[in-house]
Every structure is written in C-alpha cells, then in structure tokens.
C-alpha cells in the first residue's frame, strides 16, 4: 500500500518537475511547480515528517509561489523583448553542459555506494516532537531567526519604498 502510494507520488513529482522545465510559458511553469510542491509534501507525510509537510504546503506552495508569480509578472514577457542567443553561446553552453555531465558520470562511477538503512518509525517529524526540540534545545536559533525576519522586513521596505525627498 505504502509502496504504491510512494510510486504514484514519485511519478507525479517527476512529471510535474519535467513540466516545469519544458513549459514554454513561464506562468505554466510556476503552476506546475505548485503541483510539484504538493507531491513533495505528500512524500514528507510518507516519511513521517508531518510538520515539514505542513510548512511546505503553507509557506512554499502558498506564499513563495505567490512571490514567484509576482516576479514572473514583474518581468517584461513580450515575445519581441526575448533575447536571442547567438550560435557561439549555444555551442559554448552545449560543450560546458556536456563536460559537466561527463564529470558527473565519472564521479558517480568513482564513488562506492554505502549501505543506507532507512530509519523507520521515527517520531521526530511530528509537530509535538518538533515543538519540544525547538523550544528547548534549539531555542537560540529560533530566537535569532526573529532577528533575521526583522532584518528581512527592513531590507525589503528599504529596497522597495521610494524615499521622499
């Protein structure tokens, strides 16, 4: 049962991820990315990481994707403004990508795959467990993250707001 669920989710994830890359329209790419995020949240649930799944849905599929859509809309997407790459840059990028592919294959062949035992029946991904850890052992990083949010807010306001002269 769990295996079939995983296989369905994995196939859906790969199809949606490929659709993100191959969509001509950037809007469709973003919408496919939302589907991809939903399927990845499903994977998190299967791995007993419920908190991560909920964070992934609310923050990534909900909020970050809005930002992605806005960035796409902020760009000028008219067809005539699309830059055309010259043949030289096409050849150069093909060679670079091919070399990288060769390096990747070589390194995969060189590494010996070790044994990996999936720890089944861990409870660390549950919301209660995450909360207990977060508010006792990892309290300082949690509080520091609030300072990070503060600086992010100030930074975004400073960048986007026009100063009155």
């Amino acid at each position: 049962m769990s295996l079939y669920l995983f296989l369905t989710l994995a196939i859906l994830t790969i199809i949606s991820a490929l659709a993100v890359v191959f969509s001509k329209n950037p809007m469709y790419s973003v919408l496919w990315l939302i589907v991809c995020f939903f399927t990845i949240a499903g994977h998190y649930v299967l791995l007993n990481a419920q908190f991560l799944a909920i964070v992934h849905l609310i923050v990534y599929a909900g909020a970050i994707m809005v930002l992605f859509l806005f960035v796409v809309m902020l760009l000028n997407l008219n067809a005539d403004t699309e830059p055309h790459k010259s043949n030289l840059s096409k050849i150069a990028s093909a060679i670079a990508a091919g070399l990288f592919f060769v390096v990747l294959i070589a390194s995969i062949r060189a590494t010996a795959l070790g044994e990996f035992n999936l720890p089944n029946k861990t409870n660390i991904g549950f919301v209660e467990e995450v909360g207990k850890k977060l508010f006792t052992d990892f309290l300082l990083p949690f509080e520091i993250s609030s300072v990070l949010f503060l600086s992010a807010m100030i930074g975004s306001v400073l960048l986007a707001k026009k100063e009155k002269k």
Partner: peptide, 30 residues
C-alpha cells in the same frame, strides 16, 4: 506589462508573517 513593485512588497511582507505563524503551530501544540 510590468506592474507596480508595491504588490511585490506586500507579498514579501506577507511571507515573513506567514513563517511567523508557522512557528506558532508547534508552540501551540506544546
């Protein structure tokens, strides 16, 4: 057509408070 940066600013500020609320979830459970 390119639209105003104000929409983006509102969205990015929303993300901050969204993440804040996410931290409240494990806190509220415990």
């Amino acid at each position: 057509i390119p639209f105003s940066i104000k929409y983006f600013l509102i969205a990015i500020l929303f993300v901050m408070f969204d993440v804040e609320v996410i931290f409240m979830y494990p806190w509220a459970v415990n």
